[in-house]
């Protein structure tokens, strides 16, 4: 009895370890590779034989304009997140509370828009934005990013608002609030975990966006970090700068990881809210 219980426990741990290793292996290799010297980049040892930060120095070298790209990424992902969150909050609240015809259809359409492959619409978008004179502007990246992140944000928040009892707003309205005040003073504070989760998901999606950012920019100073990484040049034309790409990858990932770790309790609360009363 105890033996079999022990076995089950060990199997469980082994399974968990396998999944964690599987998920983290690429990141680990990225981190290790970024710390190798350029000459050792094809080594297979699990730890760098010669620890070196030369890749990081190369990435942060002003000639690569990588810091500028990071700043662009922050601007694009940040504005996308804020705007998408504001729009999605109002939309989702309406979806959760108002009864109107074809509501189901509207919600389905919203989620359907996120299913178009980006590749298929990038060319028409490019043509349109050229017409607008939007090439090499932030809005050329923000507007499409928003349209891709909004559906998920709306769905996420709709589910969140829906599980909040209507009596809360009604109590607030009886207590002297207008509908707007009830929303601001009661619903928004309670929705904070859900909004937080949505914000993080939106931010990550916008932060990692590549195709649109690549298409809509050709000036290095307007490129976002993922685009900049893809354009790193090595010492010669025939050398792919794996080392600095890995280092840049780490630099791009670390802020996200820190953010998620810091707020993980709130994120979990947001993702599981309403699962049990």
């Amino acid at each position: 009895m105890t033996l079999s219980l022990n076995w089950r426990k060990w199997l469980l741990y082994a399974g968990v370890a396998a999944v964690v290793a599987y998920c983290l292996a690429p990141f680990y290799w990225m981190l290790v590779s970024s710390l190798r010297r350029t000459s050792d980049i094809f080594e297979n040892s699990p730890l760098p034989t010669h620890l070196s930060f030369e890749n990081y120095l190369a990435v942060l070298d002003p000639s690569q304009a990588f810091t500028r790209a990071l700043l662009n990424s922050i601007v694009v992902a940040g504005i996308t997140t804020v705007l998408a969150l504001i729009l999605a909050t109002f939309t989702a609240y309406a979806m959760a509370r108002l009864e109107f015809r074809l509501k189901r259809l509207v919600l389905t359409l919203i989620i359907a828009t996120s299913m178009f492959p980006v590749v298929s619409i990038v060319v028409p978008l490019l043509k349109m934005f050229v017409g607008f004179g939007w090439i090499n502007t932030y809005q050329a990246m923000i507007v499409p990013s928003m349209s891709f992140t909004l559906p998920l944000a709306v769905w996420n928040l709709t589910a969140f608002f829906r599980q909040m009892p209507q009596e809360l707003e009604q109590a607030a309205m009886v207590d002297g609030c207008t509908r707007g005040q009830a929303f601001r003073r009661i619903i928004i504070p309670l929705a904070a975990p859900g909004m937080f989760t949505t914000a993080i998901i939106t931010f990550i999606a916008a932060w990692n966006e590549f195709l649109i950012a690549l298409t809509m920019t050709n000036k290095p100073e307007m490129q976002t970090a993922p685009v900049a990484i893809s354009k790193f040049s090595g010492a010669s034309q025939f050398e792919t700068p794996f080392g600095s790409q890995m280092a840049a990858g780490v630099l791009v990932t670390v802020p996200l990881v820190i953010m998620v770790l810091l707020f993980q309790r709130r994120i979990v609360a947001g993702l599981t809210a309403g699962a049990a009363k």
Binding site: P165, E167, L168, A171, M173, V174, T178, P189, L190
Partner: peptide, 20 residues
Amino acid sequence: LPPKDRDIAMVFQNYALYPH
């Protein structure tokens, strides 16, 4: 009239206390 202008107080079945 909207609820806020009626000078009433209501106790709900699920109490609807503000959790925060």
